[in-house]
Design a binder for these strands. Structure first.
Lengths: 342, 342
DNA sequence: AGTGACGTGGGTAACGTTTTCCAAATGTTT
DNA sequence: AAACATTTGGAAAACGTTACCCACGTCACT
């Protein structure tokens, strides 16, 4: 009953079946130079007849593995899923297979995961919102083609794709000011590291908020609760803001999950949205679009970001010494039912 | 400026530095038999001093890759994220690295992803809610240790971990009957394939619903809308049920997303929940727990399922010929605000 | 003292590809 | 027709690790 699974087919079997050398088969597999159309045809047929599939492990030892590693800090963040969709769609008809490393929140876990991907000879890496030190990222990028998504700042070693978070924050503030709000508060992700303070999207959003408030002459109204980009962080942040002597009339949460937490705290305080207070999020995740919630949010087009990252990566794999590029996309505001006139 | 990344360290470098053979280093790396404590110490130190990391590609060619592949049909389903958490937590302090293959909805994509994992010499596979034919799963399991999660039915080739969906459906029906409901309807995922009809969780839930209704003497009240496990499916299913000559007083949706769709349709029909109609879901996803929704749902403890799957898999990698096991977990009901007395 | 078992370490041949040559055949130019 | 470039196919050496086997020394027991 438990027949012992026949030995895996190798390139040698294909070569024998097609009556050619293994070199020839290898050339056909890689679309390499030096194989005539007739040879291609013959080998392709042998491959199809035998159902041969090359071993990535063996390939990796000399050449490519045709594997692209994607690091995601958090699976539950739907925005990241959009980015991933963009990557897989873009890579769908190529020879590359995308593999994901889960659970890499924190610098230590991130380092472990990146090492694991390098150990597995991946051809390229997409790092989404990495928190590692810039020096480390540069080292990684020197040993394997890398694209960093969602982290500002340029590097000579890796390409980057970001959204213009400063512009995104401004969109929200402009919208709220247009509705007559003045006391507009912000819930940010607490950050201490200096480099990250300059490069991480959360910091840029907080900066964008401050700049936009100043631009509207509302410098005196700037009010920030510093918690974290989680639902609990939003809940806590909103509680802090609601306890102010003069309550804000609008809250700009740095992320949709944060806005959700804020909504809970607001409901618990017996206030209504948008009657008593307006709330806006960031990311335009599926959650924001969900009917009963209907959250005003900034849309980043994660699919577009992912697709661009994949394109840049494949490009770099083909040409490792080209100059690095920084791609910045413009966000848009999606107005829903959680924001209204003050 | 772009120093050309020094050649990667190999086991030979370590062997030379520690003044021993490569065989010895390999033994230490694998915790294999035949190395004295003194030898271990010496080699460990050399590894640490040089910062050596073994190449998974080379290892895969002869032995293990220390990589476990997980196939998820859908990243956005939070229940699957829980399973994954369970897997990574369980494997956290082992030598195994978990890699995920994204976007495998549909039999064809699933086949491609499984092949890709096999090609990459993964040591073991966790397949979550696979839709492939049973024959195919058996073939896969013969070539690489495999655990199937969330699919009923036993196999001599692979272990399986499931939730008792029949019991889960019964929990919901019991609860609703206890509240005085009699006209309890169900929204199921439409299924035609015979094997899947017996093995997929959705079919089991529908079965459990029927059995429980009969057990309560409510055979005449059985009413099923057959759509799909999506939000749109829930919306459509609820519309169908609401259009019945005699409206049901409670709807048991086969999944939380389905319940969400149903809630939308009910609200659109001008009815209230749970005043006019009670709604229950399945999965106890974060969405169900979210305050404003507060959906009564069946909890499957995905973390527990994932942890068990990982345990079984590691066990099987170590002992490939042991008998297969089927592990079935008991669900619990989480009562929230969408169900009330009839 | 002889014998066998065991613990310890190493030499070497795989593993399945790709890469780097090289030779032969074919085509093109003078 | 000679000289040279190009195309086509293959032989053989990597790539970095592990599996298999053997040798040597030590120890316990006849």
């Amino acid at each position: 009953m438990d027949k012992p699974a026949p030995r895996r087919l190798t390139i040698v079997d294909v070569a024998r079946h097609a009556q050619v050398s293994t070199t020839a088969v290898s050339k056909v597999l890689r679309n390499a130079y030096g194989a005539s159309p007739a040879m291609r045809e013959k080998v392709q047929q042998a491959i199809a007849e035998l159902g041969y599939r090359p071993s990535a492990a063996a390939r990796g030892l000399r050449g490519q593995t045709y594997t692209i590693g994607v690091m995601l800090p958090e699976l539950r963040n739907l925005f990241f899923a959009d980015i991933l969709d963009g990557i897989t769609t873009q890579l769908g008809d190529s020879d590359y297979q995308v593999l994901l490393a889960p659970g890499c929140n924190g610098e230590k876990a991130e380092a472990k995961v990146i090492d694991a991907m390098i150990d597995r000879s991946m051809d390229g890496l997409v790092l989404i919102a990495p928190v590692s030190a810039k020096k480390r990222l540069t080292e990684v990028a020197r040993s394997v083609p890398t694209v960093v998504v969602g982290r500002h700042g340029s590097s000579p070693a890796y390409d980057s794709v970001t959204d213009d978070d400063i512009a995104g924050a401004a969109l929200v503030v402009d919208h709220l000011v247009g509705l007559g709000h003045r006391r507009i508060a912000h819930i940010e992700h607490h950050e201490t590291d200096r480099v990250r303070l300059a490069e991480m999207p959360n910091a840029q959003r907080a900066d964008g908020y401050r700049q936009a408030m100043i631009a509207h002459g509302l410098e005196a109204e700037i009010d920030v609760a510093s918690t974290s980009y989680t639902q609990a962080g939003g809940y806590l942040g909103a509680q802090q803001l609601l306890a102010r002597p003069v309550r804000p009339t609008a809250i700009f949460a740095g992320a949709d999950v944060v806005a959700l937490g804020a909504l809970e705290a607001i409901a618990e305080a017996g206030l209504t949205v948008p009657g008593d207070i307006s709330v806006a999020g960031y990311d335009n995740s599926a959650l924001a679009a969900f009917g009963p919630i209907s959250l005003t949010s900034v849309d980043q087009d994660g699919r577009q970001m992912g697709a661009n990252a994949a394109r840049l990566l494949v490009d770099r794999i083909g040409q490792r010494d080209r100059r690095t590029a920084q791609m910045k996309l413009s966000p848009t505001l999606v107005v829903r039912r959680t924001t209204a006139a003050a």
